Every structure is written in C-alpha cells, then in structure tokens.
Simulated scan of single mutants.
Amino acid sequence: MNLFKNTGILYIVPTPIGNLSDITYRALETLKSVDLIACENIKHTNILLKHFNIKNILITFNKINESQKSNNLIEELKKGKKIALVSNAGTPLINDPGYLLIKKCHLFNIQILPLPGPCAAITALIASGLSTHRFCYEGFLPSKKQLRRDLLNSLKKEKRTMIFYESKHRIIETIKDIINEIGENRHIVIAREITKKWEIIYGNKAYLMLSWIKEDENRYNKGENVIIIDGYKEFKNVNISDKIINTFTILRTVLSLKQSVLITSKIHKIKKNNLYQYAITNKDK
C-alpha cells in the first residue's frame, strides 16, 4: 500500500563534519539524482559537490529564510520533485534549520527519507569514555553568562551523560561555569575539531581540564568544541568517624580540598570518593 501518492521525496542528507572521506556512497548518489539541493550556504556546499564532481541546482535554506523557503519547497514536493536537505556539516536539523520543513512534510503526507551519517555529538560521545547507555543532548550553551550558569545549575543532578556544543570564544569561561555550578570534580571530556587535522579528544576532572586547556592556546583558539559531562552519581552514605572528620577538617583549613582528601584517605585508609562526597554534602558546615 502506497502511503505517499503523487508527491515527491525529501531526503535528509548528512554531510562530513570535517573529513570529506566520511561521505557515504548513498549520500553521493542522492545528491546526484535529486532535482535540487536545499543547503544553508551555497558556497560551502559547492566545495563538497565539486570535490565529488557533482553538479546540481542549489538553493539557500537557512534560519533566516526557513519559514518562507519551507512553503516553497513543499510546493515543489507536491509536484513530485525529489529534494535533498543538507546543512553545512553533519546531520541536518541538529542545531540546524529544517524542523519546519519536516513538520510540513508530515502535515501534507510527503515522504521523508533520512540517511544515516556524521554527527559531531554522537561521534564525540562514543569516544568520550563516559556512559553511552543514557544521554541527553543540550545543543549550544547560552552565550550570556547568567543564562549559561542557570542552565548548568539546573542540570547539576542530571544522571544521564550530557552533550553540549561550545564555540572557541567561550570554552574557557564555560569550563569555569561547569566547575562553579556542577562541581570541580565532575568528569568532563572536550572533543575539538573532530575528524579534522587538529582533532583532539581529552577528558579529566573539570578543574584539571581548566588548567589543561590553558596550557596551550591551540587547545582553545581553533574550531568548535563538543563538551561531554558525566552524569550525576549518587553515593551511598558511608559512616565517617569523628576521628576522620577531625583530621580532614584540620587539613582543610590550610590545604586545598584535593590535598586534604588525599592525605586523610592515606592516614585513615578510606576511599577518596567517600571523603569527596562527605565534603560536598557538608559544604555549608
């Protein structure tokens, strides 16, 4: 039974996020065979098409003209046209225009064929070493400091692995905000310039990531970043004796949290995580 009578097809076509060799055979065949390609930036998409000797009609489809162009594309699809939707890089609609067009396709019963392909968020996640069983994607963090801090604070006890995008201009400030709002010991991973020449994926506790990224300006002055934050983990309550608390409290008056935990754990042979949890729970005291 054909559910889509007398209409065209909208193909959602992922494109490489850096390395042009990541394009799929199916994506290339689709870009060759469709009647036209809707893209964010004609000049940018032409680089890809010329590399693979593909010639086709290109029209701009971006956040500014998405509403009007969606209506125009729907009319073409109603006529039976086959159209490919691409973004500048990666999978369309993930922080890119296309939502309104897809919604209208469903409304007018127009067939949609999504192709699998590159996505920076998923590529970074699988290489992060953090849990991939449950995760949430939050997109770009707010550019305004207070809004960014408020969002991070609201996610402080999110148990799923969290994925964010961040620009090179705010990466240092964002790590500082993660330390202040989520915690200096929360494990985070930064994946920068994925699939490109200067690709690097590195993770550690938030406060150590801040010092690491500041060591070399090449770690923060190029490209886009994916930030992955480990989900909140509840620790079981552990009985900590008054003797241990006294040792820790005395050390904390003259040493950093990290040093106090390390020395106390060695003296009393207690797990460092238990002491960290005690310190966090009793922060106000």
Rank of each mutant, 00 (worst) to 15 (best):
M162R: 09
M162H: 08
T174I: 14
I182W: 00
E217P: 09
E199L: 09
H187E: 12
V189N: 01
E181L: 11
T195N: 11
S167M: 11
S167D: 09
V189P: 03
I175M: 04
E217K: 14
I163G: 00
K159H: 13
I188N: 01
Y207M: 11
F164Y: 14
K214V: 10
I163H: 02
I201R: 04
N185I: 01
Y207S: 15
T195C: 09
E173Q: 14
Y202L: 07
K176Q: 13
I213M: 11
L208H: 12
N180W: 08
K197T: 14
V189Q: 00
K205P: 02
H169N: 13
T161K: 05
T195A: 09
L210G: 06
H187Q: 13
K176G: 00
R170W: 07
T195L: 09
R170E: 06
Y202W: 11
M209Q: 04
I163V: 15
K168L: 15
I163D: 01
F164I: 10
S211A: 13
S167K: 08
R160G: 03
N180H: 08
F164W: 09
E166T: 02
I190D: 00
N185S: 12
I171L: 06
W198N: 13
K168A: 15
W212I: 11
E184A: 14
K196A: 09
Y165T: 02
K196G: 06
I178C: 03
I179G: 08
V189L: 02
R192F: 04
E193I: 04
K205W: 07
T174Y: 05
I179Y: 10
T161D: 04
E173L: 11
T174E: 06
T195Y: 11
T195M: 11
E166I: 01
R186E: 03
